[in-house]
Design a protein around this nucleic acid. Structure first.
Length: 364
DNA sequence: AAGCTAGACAACCGCGTTCCG
DNA sequence: TCGGAACGCGGTTGTCTAGCT
């Protein structure tokens, strides 16, 4: 029997839900609970597919959901988590009670990304556009002039008024970070962190990603770490609305940071988590190099043996910035990140162009 | 008042993973 | 162990609405 996509089945309603449908769903779930979504629409008397029912319940009808606007604290959390782990909306949403991945994703796409772009910060890398351009200039010597901008995100492209260029595709066989992370079981962060029996493998080690989340979470919860700005900056910088911020955190550091001295530098990936102590920075850099070498040895980054050492050093520094974020807060870092992933892609492309100078870059 | 546009967000789609017989 | 069904996720599209011309 050929199984059609649920939404292609006959007589199944699509589109927006009516109040009557919502009432049926709520009545059914409150009586029978969730589970086996494919059976729900039939039992609840709805002409919807199970997938649609699950989505409606998960994203809208669930009683524990917030339907009001995002607070500055939540904005801050989203930005920080996105900087740490990228667009893992479900994981980010887990740290925001009452919010769904869809909520967070929509809010990011419609508000936060734009705000960051307008402030000259690349929403993908969380680095200043100027720094990204500088980085590209540094590695652009081998590139054919005028060929393309490279894998800059759309925001940056529009921001710097460059003509539209296709992004390079990820090399085949490159590790699928998203899939591996998605495959990991969902557990509350605290539980996950306390579980020493985790089996996630480098470089998509969920533990470390969650550690990064924990780091960010704790930083937002009244950390005295001066590298972490308090929620107040969200009001000052992110929120264009008149939402007033009532600090739940009353640390001196937080109050000090709420001053006009706040800098968006605090949100930039390279800087936000770096230890203030230069010696400590050196330590983290050393760690990063070792980890990168470890990745290389494991073949994860697929770096060839003809590496240019200087380029490796550069790549080490960039690709490990996020790990510094983890280390600087007394966590044991053990994984890469989306940021590192992008940088690794860049580097791998660089490798390829070195090996095959006549090869045209590949496009989407 | 009508038409247009952009923003917000609800909903859908496709794909990868997990579950289970 | 295998295959199909169910589930969950991120990306994308669709719809509604407010504001502007």
């Amino acid at each position: 029997m050929v199984r059609l996509p649920c939404c292609d089945r006959l007589n199944l309603k699509r589109g927006l839900w009516t109040e009557e449908e919502d009432a049926k769903m709520i009545a059914y779930v409150s009586k029978h609970g969730t589970g086996n979504w494919t059976a729900v629409p039939k039992k609840a008397g709805l002409k919807r597919c199970g997938k649609s029912c699950r989505l409606r319940w998960t994203n809208y009808l669930r009683p524990d959901l917030k339907h009001d606007g995002f607070t500055p604290q939540e904005e801050e959390m989203i930005v920080r988590l996105h900087a740490a782990i990228g667009s893992r909306w479900s994981i980010i949403a887990q740290q925001l009670p009452g919010r769904t991945d869809n909520d967070v994703k929509n809010y990011w796409n419609t508000k936060l990304r734009k705000k960051l772009s307008e402030m000259g910060i690349d929403p993908v890398t969380h680095k200043p556009f100027s720094q990204i351009l500088a980085d590209y200039g540094n590695i652009g010597g081998f590139r054919k002039p005028g060929i393309r901008v490279g894998p800059l995100n759309k925001d940056l492209k529009s921001e710097i008024m460059l003509k539209s260029e296709p992004y390079p595709a990820a090399p085949q066989g490159f590790p699928n970070f998203n899939s591996q992370l998605m495959s990991a079981k969902k557990e509350p962060i605290q539980d996950t962190l306390s579980n020493n029996n985790h089996t996630y493998n480098y470089p998509s080690d969920l533990l470390t990603e969650l550690q990064a989340i924990k780091l960010v979470t704790e930083a937002s919860n009244c950390s005295n770490n001066e590298t972490i700005p308090p929620p107040a900056f969200a009001e000052a910088s992110l929120s264009s609305s008149s939402v007033s911020y009532s600090p739940t955190c009353s640390t001196t550091a937080a109050q000090e940071k709420s001053s006009p001295d706040f800098s968006w530098h605090d949100f930039l990936l390279d800087d936000a988590f770096l230890p203030a102590d230069p010696q400590e920075q050196e330590t983290t850099a050393e760690y990063s190099s070792k980890e990168f070498a470890s990745q290389k040895q494991k073949g994860i980054l697929q770096i060839s043996d003809t590496d240019n050492e200087a380029a490796i050093q550069e790549s080490n520094t960039k690709a490990k910035a996020i790990e510094c974020a983890v280390i600087s807060n007394d966590f044991e870092a053990s994984s890469s990140s989306d940021f590192a992933f992008v940088e690794a892609m860049l580097y791998q492309e660089y490798e390829m162009l070195l090996d095959f100078p006549n090869l045209e870059p590949f496009y989407y």
